[in-house]
Amino acid sequence: MLLQVKNLHVSINGKEILKGVNLEVNKGEVHAIMGPNGTGKSTLAAVIAGKNGYEITQGEILYNGKNLLDMPPEVRAQEGIFLGFQYPVEIPGVSMTNFMRTALNEIRKYHGQEPMSAKDFLARMTEKKDLVELTSKLTNRSVNEGFSGGEKKKNEIFQMAMLDPQLSILDETDSGLDIDALRIVAHGVNKLKTKENATVVITHYQRLLDYIVPDFVHVLFEGKVVLSGGKELALELEEKGYDWIKKETENHSK
């Protein structure tokens, strides 16, 4: 098993956001996590990636059987976890090329590999850039600086392609994208799919799932996974709306 989230409780400033989340992801699978805004989807992604400011009050996360919560964020990344940010950060003065080369070589070092030669690295850049139709103009700039919303999201998938992670968590990658950009991003994600890796797509809308077809759909509501099912669940959700979940949960608790 690649990722195992067990009874995860997370608070921010004393307020409980996740109230016992369970999730299992195996290699070769695509999972979608859906749910209304403010229900804890991004919190889950951030906690898996190891962002500061979250208090884990209960539960554990195992990754390839290792305790993920003990690892600093960069080790998690080196272990193969990639987070596609909902709001990619601008870093003035740091070029995309330098940024990616440093990241790639640090990950290689972690796995006992030699740094990639400049030639191979540039070849890889060119290859992966084409995947998401990112122009050279953008990769020559500072990280995300002056990128449009769509360019920032494409840039996230480009980086995912460059780093070749085992588990990719894409946090609202579809937000703010027009249909063309969405198609390009989804195409990139599908291309990168193998039997050895897995993808977790976090989204509010079903729209993205037309392009990235999930094997499993989970509905996160009020800090818990309240429903899990196949891809048809997403369609049902689309049809009935989140109010339906609300009622279901209320009935259930009665």
């Binding site: 964020p73 990639f82 940010f85 990619p88 950060v89 870093i91 940024f99 640090e106 990950i107």
Partner: peptide, 9 residues
């Protein structure tokens, strides 16, 4: 955090 997430210490 962004750098760390990309595996840079």
């Amino acid at each position: 955090f962004y750098c760390q997430q990309r595996g840079i210490n």
